[in-house]
Amino acid sequence: MRFLKFFILILIIFNFNLVHAKTKSLDAKITKNLRCLICQGQSIHDSDSEFAISLKTLVKKKLNEGSSEEEIYNYLKDKYGEWILYDPGFSKNTYFLWLLPLLMFLIGGAIILKLFIYKKN
């Protein structure tokens, strides 16, 4: 019973906060994925440099013109190189980046499995 009361309490708390739930805008999503060239280590979204401000304007403009997220990324990749994207796509440069951790996971699983099989023999 005590737990039930607790759940209800949690539900109430969350429902209060639902007031703030709001659609995250696409341009924020895009600018968060772009790396600023002036303060290199910050995203465009977080940066207030002149370059970042212009790029934010440009992303909004492009979205209004009907460009898709992918098109904007390709456009900027063309201008500034792959470096500008925080999300490295899956390409010949990044096969290892994406697959190596997953490979490690599989190897780890195999080693653990081997411990059990070893025991059975």
């Binding site: 370059f51 212009s54 304007t57 440009l58």
Partner: peptide, 12 residues
């Protein structure tokens, strides 16, 4: 607004 500089691939 700095958007033409971006067309050129400039950043500063």
């Amino acid at each position: 607004d700095g958007t033409i500089a971006i067309e050129w691939g400039a950043y500063g």
